[in-house]
Amino acid sequence: MIRVVSVSKVYNKGEPNQVRAVWEVSLHVPQGEMAVVRGPSGSGKTTLLTLIGCFARPSSGEIQVAGKPISRLPEKFMTLHRRKHVGMMFQQFNLIQDLSVEKNVAIPLYPLQLSGRLIDERVDALLHMVRLDKRRAFPVKRLSGGEQQRVAIARALANDPEIVLADEPTAHLDTALSQELMTMLQALKAEGRTIVIASHDPVVYGHPSVDRVLTMKDGCMSEV
């Protein structure tokens, strides 16, 4: 499903503050598998996720999704690809704090040609899945960390993506909630989605549903 071939990402190339965030990384994640990229802070995990998710272009190398090269697409097509195929859970959640739970979850659906009723139905289903029905009208800033994480999950799944990316999903959760999160991700995997997680949490990379663990250090990769 996801094939990364010798991908590098260099920020501020040619300048004194040049940073090699990812260097010559290759990996393959078949469809329906769950892969975890572990490594210390600054190892390039997040950058790799952004490249896979089409949030940025690699400086060199190629990324293929379902056999189609996506790394050199024009910005408009990268956005379309992201919109149709990718759901992202951000480390900082990146929710709009003053907006309600249901509006946050619906954000990926607004630019689509869906009727208001269909959007409402989809949001209802997602909130039920993450058990936030009763909190739907609450502004996100009034939720706990675990609840905000669930909102982030619901939003990531709003567009029914084939690929789910999660950047340090358990960073703000305790062990029990982390286990709960992994259970949800396992369920998503069971639906046939491909999941790539960046995390240094042993609860995550030690979970039995994880198919492969890759280690990154200083932008380079090795597999465990």
């Binding site: 949030f55 910005e75 408009k76 956005t79 990146n94 954000i107 607004y110």
Partner: peptide
């Protein structure tokens, strides 16, 4: 930040 979030969740510039 809000515009960045919208872009990150699938909105393009025209949206």
């Amino acid at each position: 930040r809000e515009i960045g979030i919208l872009k990150a969740t699938g909105w393009d510039t025209s949206d």
